[in-house]
Amino acid sequence: MLKYIVKRLLLSILILLGVSLIIYILVRCMPYDFVSNKISALQSNTSLDATAVEKMYEMYGLSDSSFLGILKGYVNWLAALCRFDFGKSFVYGDSVLNVIVDHMGVSFAVALIATFFEFLIAIPLGITAATHQYSLRDYIVTILVMVGISLPTFFFGQILKDALAMKLGWFPPSGLVDATKDFSNVFDLVLDYLRHMFIPILTVVILSIGGRMRMTRTNMLEVLSSDYIRTARAKGLKEKVVIYKHAFRNTLIPLVTSLAGLLPSLFSGAIITEQVFDLPGIGNVAFKAMMQADIPFIMGYNMFLALLSVIGVLLADLMYAVVDPRVKLS
């Protein structure tokens, strides 16, 4: 087990190196004058000081865009990374790590609550659809789920925003906190956060429920057709016991595994959802940075995403062995 984990970790480092090289080369493909124009435009209206820009040029070797120059820049960047120095973001005028950590919370809160409700609603739906296969109930659930999968985030988000926020006025349309009010009480502040997050969470839940439900249904069907379920029925167990005690537990294996794989990605932020509702999450922040050729932030953010997905895959594989004793890691 330990040997396996070590091997996987080493492989992950290799993957991350490959990913960083690709992203670095892509970023460095930006023409020099394009980048310097953006930087000087930013310099005039932010607190970016000349030394930070100087350091940036040195760290990325921006002025030299020959192949060797890019390679040298990459090595410099790697060396800085080993000292946990991601550089300073142009757009936000702060260290990249700080910007990521500052905005991670909002994204994580939205994603965590959404995932919770997603599992809470999708699993029972999936089970009823599977136990009543080919019934009217199954068809209705399946069609609703299909519609859910097919909705574009931005379109559905705008519809919800129009209906719930603009027309009915139940929830604020965008942002995270009501700037006109003064919150002396922490409880009130959290409540206001939740009010602002409601529509984004609703959007994410409705869009993601479909996939999860289909997964539950497929697994449940597979388990229900296995021999031990027939045995359980043959020995006269109640249908409820058969389904919830015998079948459901085995359906949980892939669900728990996928949840483990999902956990890291909760931090990654949703660019489009945050864009639609103007939430100050990490996706929104990254989108603005990318539009303005903020090289340190682009590198830092993309490496952050790659790291999360590597951890996710690793966690899912490990979880698989933990939940299912039949699986041996080697």
Binding site: G18, V27, A293, I298, N302, A306, S309, V310
Partner: peptide, 17 residues
């Protein structure tokens, strides 16, 4: 493995820039 770990949407945003 490497390509699958690349964050797809952000990469396309970079390419768009």
């Amino acid at each position: 493995d490497i390509l699958m770990c690349l964050p797809g949407f952000p990469i396309l945003l970079i390419i768009s820039t």
